[in-house]
Amino acid sequence: MANMTLIGAVNDALKTALREDPSVLVFGEDVGKKGGVFLATDGLQAEFGADRCFDTPLSEDGIIGTAIGMAMNGLKPVAEIQFQDFIFPAFDQIVSEAAKLRYRSGGQYTAPMVIRTPYGGGIRGGLYHSQSGEAYFCHTPGMKVVIPSTPYDAKGLLLAAIADPDPVLFMEPKALYRAVKGEVPEGHYTVELSTTRNVREGDDVTVVEKAADMAAEKGISVHVVDLRTLLPLDESAVVEAAKKTGRVVTVTEAPRFCGYAGEISAIVAERAIEYMEAPVVRVTGFDTPFPNTLEHHYLPDARRVIDAIEKVANF
């Protein structure tokens, strides 16, 4: 066991994968000598060589397009998109190609690959270094979408994603890269995809959130669920948690309309409405582009989450 940051756990997972599986390659913009703009790939090229960890030309479309070809021909690509905000030139390759290849070929060709990308606000990054675009990809059958919120999960989920036979988008909450620390086992272990984690057990309100642990102390017992894998989602865990308290708040940084929080709300409405004591409340970003100067008001911080919890608790 070692005490690590979340980004340290990502780095450790990549090293573990490169060590164990000669078909694993790590590549993207600035991931080689520099070790990535956040240093997620720090030291990998020095340890494993430039054939295993390397820089690419500046084209997200090319990074993901070539990764698909590598995956189709026996390699295990782990591609980095420097910021999730820059992923859209590769949207076509992800949505039209990687996600649909198994289906359209009747299972003859597959693209087992991982796309790592930092996402989310909290670093004063403005419109193009802060977005939470998970909903675009969760609307794409064939993709798996994973978001860790602890160092232990980051390593275990990333190793599970690399071992997975399907394409996985691995979204890393950049605000938590160095904000959380935790015990991480040495060597290989996995956290099973499509399983949730109960962050906190409680009886009064269920908070379904994709980010980290948060405070809610006003005499209300809060049950916090970290979804970990957004697609395919362990829906039954959401439904069970909703039934337990009868009150649900969903928290995401993304804009509200057509967002993931709405999907959770719909699942609860369809499968547990008879247990509900209050409407499901979404706490999200605004339906605006991501701001810069006012980002701390845009983000669903503790004030807004606690207000929502009180609202459903007192309904």
Partner: peptide, 23 residues
């Protein structure tokens, strides 16, 4: 097969050729 989206197979072929070289 091609996908119907024009040009997407071009980087696939390049990535697969890199795999051939590496492997």
């Amino acid at each position: 097969s091609w996908s119907s989206v024009i040009g997407t197979q071009i980087p696939h072929g390049v990535g697969a050729a890199l795999a051939a070289k590496r492997l």
